[in-house]
């Protein structure tokens, strides 16, 4: 479903953000992208949602070769993806419900279908009771749940989460992570960039570790059949 083939990404002539990265992520997988700050995790995610394009090599997402996408085709790709960030990126002047509905409205969804869908995903992330709250009235964990609900509302093939627990205390982080696991259990692939090794160690999911832009470890390749055990 997502395939990186010999991907290089340079932001400037001398700085390589990714070097010769190749991996394949299948439907329904849960994958951790780990590595230190600046290792290339966010760049890899940006290449998936076509915010950036490879300098060389190929990124294929759900049948699209991203570097061949016309600008007008990018929204169509993004509607198949759910994206969650460390800083939530909610619209401060809209309620939780409006923030989620917004992701449907931009796709031109029919009005009558929006309300029920929004309530369904808000219930899924445990925030049905706070549908009318504004982001400033919600805790960090709750805001991230709204962001996840927004990412889920279009029934994405894959949920991309860039340090989704980075701004949260431990309890909230565990809650959000559990939510991502539940989402994965219902069939949506999840790619989670994190440097929270504690979380990574506790779970049996695939780990791809980046170091200075290169893949130094991929549990699916290096230790097939085994759970996520970091070297």
């Amino acid at each position: 479903m997502i395939r990186f083939t010999n991907v290089f990404k340079a932001y400037s002539r001398n700085v390589l953000a990714l070097r010769d990265v190749s991996f394949h992520i299948a439907k329904g997988e849960f994958v951790f992208l780990t590595g230190h700050s600046g290792a290339g995790k966010s760049t890899a995610l940006k290449l998936i949602y076509a915010e950036e394009f490879p300098t060389s090599g190929e990124v294929r997402v759900s049948g699209y070769v991203t570097s061949q996408l016309k600008r007008s085709e990018i929204p169509r790709l993004r509607r198949r993806l759910g994206i969650v960030f460390q800083d939530f990126r909610l619209l401060e002047d809209r309620t939780a419900e409006e923030n989620v509905a917004f992701a449907l409205e931009v796709t031109g969804a029919r009005r009558s279908t929006i309300g029920p869908k929004v309530m369904r995903v808000l219930a899924q992330v445990g925030l049905a009771a706070k549908a009318l709250a504004y982001p400033r009235e919600l805790s960090g964990g709750e805001q991230q749940r709204v962001a996840i609900a927004r990412a889920l509302v279009n029934d994405p093939l894959v949920l991309l989460a860039d340090e989704p627990t980075g701004n949260l205390d431990e309890r909230a982080a565990r809650g959000v992570f559990q939510l991502l696991r539940d989402i994965n259990a219902s069939g949506t692939a999840v790619i989670m960039a994190t440097h929270n090794l504690e979380l990574v160690r506790q779970t049996p999911y695939r780990v791809i570790e980046l170091q200075e832009g290169a893949v130094v470890y991929d549990s699916a390749v290096d230790e097939p059949g085994k759970g996520a055990v970091l070297p």
Partner: peptide, 15 residues
């Protein structure tokens, strides 16, 4: 910020 978020959730430029 709002424009950036709109694009992330798949809004077309026209929208």
């Amino acid at each position: 910020r709002e424009i950036a978020i709109m694009r992330l959730v798949g809004a077309t430029d026209g929208f």
